[in-house]
């Protein structure tokens, strides 16, 4: 029901994903933005603070910071403070390596920040195979510090072939630490392109995860507009890709895109160095095209009302074009398993 309001076009996004830097001290195999070294001409502090002001004036409710590792920016807490001074809510996605008690205490003062710590396995072996040696330990230590504070905190896990079997155990680990669990989809962008065949979950794993998610309360998924549990999504009546409708992405150098997974020249909506956030949101042809995007090939599917064609970014990265229909939807998973079974028989 809410889809019709969204399709009319909102005055600004509900939330903004802001990749404040591409600098990262890890080299995770699935990293959507292939982070490592800073991007050329990243926004400096003055420009970043101007961006905060523009986003606030546009009426955005929440800024979701990612990267890269946001805390590698020496001015990151200054940027956060500027958001909070304007009562903008924030969520920071971090790898947890740069967290200490003093930082947690400073962050907790605003009461407007939420934290996601990346953890890609319930065991050290699995997590470190994806994210690098020592990451399981540093992430769980950070999670425990956040759990001791008043900051709403979650584990963020990207579902891959390596950790699919550990998701229930991750849920239990989250409960033991005192945080929640959010599971994101693995997409073949950034370093995920080279890691795709190795790390992509199988159709069987995706179906098993879907069944588990439906039967497990309180686990959020990383939808493109924001994280929601299946129950909340049904309650809202929102089940469409939110790119350029409910959300958009600001890259480290001030460039705007429909979503974090489509930071490519063909999806460039504009730059904050050449226009205001509101102007770009209102007038960008690429944003207009996403608002009018129709996945015709999926319209006859029985599940179309539930997914509206799925994730355009996955379709794009797998060579179908953004309007090509999500090649990893549940219907296609079932079809693929049935075909395999017939072949084996």
């Amino acid at each position: 029901m809410s889809n019709r309001f969204v399709e009319q076009g909102l005055s600004s996004p509900v939330n903004l994903t802001w990749e404040v830097t591409l600098a990262c001290n890890l080299r995770c195999h699935h990293c959507l933005s292939a982070s490592g070294t800073p991007a050329p001409r990243e926004l400096d502090t003055t420009e970043a603070l101007q961006a905060v002001e523009q986003v606030y004036r546009a009426g955005v409710f929440q800024v979701n910071f990612g990267g890269g590792e946001p805390f590698l920016r020496p001015d990151f807490e200054v940027i956060l403070d500027a958001c909070h001074a304007r009562r903008l809510m924030t969520c920071v996605s971090t790898n947890g390596t740069l967290i200490d008690r003093a930082r947690v205490e400073r962050l907790s003062r605003s009461h407007l920040v939420a934290i996601q710590v990346s953890l890609d396995g319930a065991s050290e072996e699995t997590c470190d195979a994806i994210r690098g040696a020592g990451t399981f330990r540093s992430a769980t230590e950070a999670l425990k510090m956040f759990a001791d504070s008043q900051i709403p905190t979650s584990i963020n896990t990207v579902l891959t072939s390596l950790n699919a079997a550990e998701i229930p155990a991750l849920h239990e680990l989250a409960a033991r630490i005192g945080v929640s669990l959010r599971v994101s989809r693995f997409r073949p962008s950034g370093r995920g392109v080279t890691g795709w065949e190795w790390l992509r979950p199988s159709a069987t794993q995706l179906l098993a995860f879907s069944a588990w998610l439906t039967s497990t309360a309180g686990v959020r998924t990383g939808d493109s507009f924001f994280s929601l549990t299946p129950q909340e999504r049904q309650g809202l009546g929102l089940n469409l890709c939110g790119a350029a409708k409910l959300t958009c992405c600001l890259g480290p150098s001030g460039d705007l895109y429909p979503c974090a997974f489509l930071q490519r020249p063909e999806f460039w909506a504009g730059s904050l160095r050449n226009g205001t956030f509101q102007e770009i949101w209102d007038t960008s042809p690429i944003y207009a095209s996403f608002r009018n995007l129709r996945i015709h090939s999926c319209e006859s599917c029985q599940r179309f009302d539930q997914c509206h064609g799925g994730c355009p970014a996955v379709a794009y990265h797998l060579g179908r074009g953004v309007a090509g229909g999500d090649p990893e939807c549940l219907v296609k998973c079932v079809t693929s398993i049935e075909a395999q079974t017939r072949t084996q028989a």
Binding site: S11, V14, Q62, R87, P152, L228, E232
Partner: peptide
């Protein structure tokens, strides 16, 4: 929570969900 004006009326946002 936050609220803003839209063409259709009011859009509320609740960080605790998050919920729209």
């Amino acid at each position: 929570c936050r609220v803003r004006k839209e063409k259709f009326g009011l859009l509320f946002y609740d960080l605790r969900g998050p919920k729209l």
